[in-house]
């Protein structure tokens, strides 16, 4: 003789209870999109985008970026000041200053209409 199977009442699930996994996935995607938007906004507004040579269009110059300025020594912040330490600073500073000033960066006028040939001969 078979034992009677207890009949249990079917729990009534609301719409959100039935779709809780979809809700979880949706919220996760929403948070991910929000964080991506925030990080992209920071990337653009902070000036990091301008320093990112891995962006498309910069592949021709990526290899020329200075990745290690190890020869640019830190001057020690502690210790007594005497002739030797002052001479050391002078020597370090003069060396780096001459390198920093060696290039007259962003000089010239490469965007002038004449250079880009955007002006008619009458305007030249």
């Amino acid at each position: 003789m078979e034992e009677p199977v207890p009949v249990t009442a079917e729990p009534v699930l609301s719409f959100w209870d039935q779709h809780r996994y979809m809700l979880l996935i949706g919220i996760s995607i929403g948070i991910a999109i929000f964080l991506v938007v925030v990080s992209m906004a920071l990337y653009e507004s902070s000036g990091a985008a301008q320093l990112d040579l891995s962006r498309p269009g910069y592949s021709s110059v990526t290899s020329q970026a200075v990745k290690n300025d190890g020869d640019f020594q830190n001057y020690p912040t502690s210790g007594a000041l005497d002739k030797a330490s002052l001479d050391q600073f002078k020597s370090l500073y003069d060396k780096q200053a001459s390198q920093a000033k060696a290039v007259d960066a962003f000089s010239g006028d490469p965007l002038s209409p004449e250079v880009l040939e955007l002006s008619t001969p009458a305007n030249q």
Partner: peptide
């Protein structure tokens, strides 16, 4: 592209002038 490279390399040098030399000597 060339100006971006210039910005990265020169900017790094200008940055180092203050962080590695000027500020450190002032502190000393």
């Amino acid at each position: 592209a060339n100006d971006a490279l210039l910005r990265v390399n020169r900017g790094q040098m200008y940055e180092s002038m203050t962080t590695k030399l000027m500020a450190r000597f002032n502190a000393r």
